[in-house]
Design a protein around this nucleic acid. Structure first.
Lengths: 348, 348
DNA sequence: CATCGGACAGCAAGCGCTTTCTAGATGGGG
DNA sequence: CCCCATCTAGAAAGCGCTTGCTGTCCGATG
């Protein structure tokens, strides 16, 4: 029924071993023989059996990319960059690898299951993107999994994620703390003293780091933070909308709102506008990430640009062994403050 | 080194066959035996070898999702919905499948290569999303590939993509023509007579269908189209920005601009604003797709909502054989006109 | 009490490929 | 002119799992 290596070998009048060697190209085969084999492959329309070769060679050409939310451009951009370097079809890399992205939906269990699935497939490499969940047992489970993957020869790279201790995983970490600090510093510099903060989900590292940076800026300026000024939500627009209304209810005198990311900031803008407040005359708004749509917002969004594509590309290259990992296996990727129209001098 | 089925069997004092049956659960195994096996699996931290079982069973649990651009929420939303139904970890489905998304970047060659890679992996199903390229040889090559995949037992579903003739592939097609028609009808109804159109890349089905719908509306209203009113570009914001400036240069008297999709529309809005034109007082703008950010634009975008998530979910279920394919293997998915602030009565 | 059928468990034959080791050529140097 | 180094191709042993078929044990049946 299906064409096998043996069929090709028969047609080309060589042994299966030779066909295999032609296809893998890592063993000398005479040019004439090679050509004969390739012709047979073509004529029979032969397609290598992936599982069989993975089994025999004890390695596969699968590379996994884990993302929290595939519908979010934040992850889409990174995934795209990673994949381009992994070299799926058409990539810069030579061999054809199946770069696959797995959507964890932010759930720790799914993350673990995907990791197991990739381990099961004997993946060549795995790149984990996005913040981790701050749950000790889960973190330990993930670390154990990563260790096992590394043992099995799978290269592990973390992109935009804190390092995993006791692991061989290379980590490219975003400097969320520093970016948030710079952002709030900017707002304080404009004269703001009462700043609302819409944070992400409580248990995520990204959430915590950004919040810490924000608070560090407040502390440095001698501003005592009012607990009512912080609201937690999800990393989406809707959440920003709701949280803003809540903040406004709690303290109508806020002059600035700092959001966990750009989507949240956009939701905040909508809520402010609906409440009859002008941006930035009445309230300044700031986001984080600098996704493509942020510059198109009206007014355009003040935010922190994260080099998502660059970091992803680098992670991809490291995963493929085409770039040296950073010393110590850890590198911090810095963000850049982008001051735009949504932030201004506070009223009064 | 690595733990194998045989190791587990030895530890549980049963034969490898029994362990396999416990793990696959499709053969009667006494409860006590099963428990003993599971304990051994746990103690040894055993992970099934995917390639080996795929080889032996001649099937794998891999499901491929092809998208044009993973960084575009249009595809992200569909992919997410498909994946949720495929049942990757945590999905509704029972078995654990590795749902993987492959980024073709809109390139026909990559698309083909990914298809081959999936065929090589003996994928259980493949879902192709997004418009196809209108190139006869390529279309034929894809059709041939899809036929081969189907022959090998891979279920093939097209989501938001025109049917592939002579193929067993099930197609869930977006009614781009109808949506575009309704959108332009709306604009004409408001009184617009000079409408610019920013189309997508020339050779894509989606581009052509939307443009045809637009032109049908013009024709029905007896409006003769000026060739200068159409500009082709890519499906991104930047393209919308450039194309709008070009349209304005060609004919400053345009009162409406219809964009190939929402991202393009946003770019158009930015360009109009920079040119000192108000939306919709001076120029109305319309998009397509109704992505999440469209409602947040200022003014919010008049567009056509495509039920991306619903269509993706359905495609996923069909791919898993959990839902009957539509009669004839083809179903049209209709869009819904969303009239918002960016469209209004033309000036003068 | 002998027999029969059902419920489990094991044997062993592959699945299609890779790779080590071996063998046959070939050709150049001593 | 023979031998050895160099190339190239083949034989065959798995890789780790699934599954058809064959047994075995046991309670139920006549």
């Amino acid at each position: 029924m299906t064409v096998t290596l043996a069929d090709v070998a028969a047609r080309a009048q060589v042994s299966p071993a030779t066909v295999s060697r032609v296809l893998n190209g890592n063993y000398p085969v005479a040019a004439s023989t090679r050509e004969r084999v390739l012709r047979a492959v073509d004529e029979l329309d032969y397609v290598l059996n992936g599982p069989a070769s993975a089994l025999a060679a004890a390695t596969s050409d699968l590379v996994g990319i884990l993302v929290n939310d595939i519908a979010d451009p934040f992850f889409g951009i990174m995934a795209s960059a990673i994949q381009a370097e992994i070299g799926g079809p058409g990539g810069r890399a030579g061999g054809e690898r199946l770069a696959v992205v797995c959507n964890t939906g932010g759930s720790p269990e799914r993350e673990l299951t995907y990791l197991t699935l990739l381990q099961r497939q004997r993946a060549a490499a795995v790149v984990l993107t996005g913040g981790a969940v701050e749950d000790a047992p889960h973190a330990a489970a993930v670390a154990a999994k990563l260790r096992k993957l590394a043992d099995a020869g799978t290269r592990v790279v973390l992109c935009g994620r804190p390092p995993a201790p006791d692991t061989e995983a290379v980590a490219l970490t975003f400097d969320n703390r520093g970016g948030a600090r710079a952002l709030t510093d900017h707002l304080i510099g404009l004269g703001h003293r009462r700043l609302g903060y819409i944070a992400g989900p409580e248990e995520r590292t990204t959430t915590r780091h950004r919040l810490e940076g924000h608070r560090a800026a407040l502390a440095a300026a001698g501003i005592e933070e009012d607990p009512r000024w912080t609201v937690h939500g999800r990393y989406d627009r809707r959440s920003g909308h709701e949280a803003t209304l809540e903040l406004l209810r709690r303290d109508p005198s806020l002059t600035a709102i700092v959001a966990a990311n750009d989507s949240v900031a956009l939701g905040a803008c909508a809520a402010l506008r609906e409440s009859g407040l002008r941006i930035p005359e009445d309230v300044s708004v700031a986001g984080f990430d600098d996704l493509p749509f942020s510059i198109d917002a009206v007014p355009s969004l003040t935010t922190v640009r994260l080099p998502l594509a660059e970091a992803g590309a680098r992670a991809g290259r490291i995963a493929m062994g085409r770039e040296e990992p950073p010393p110590g296996g850890i590198a911090a990727v810095r963000g850049e403050l982008m001051v735009r129209g949504s932030s201004g001098v506070p009223r009064e």
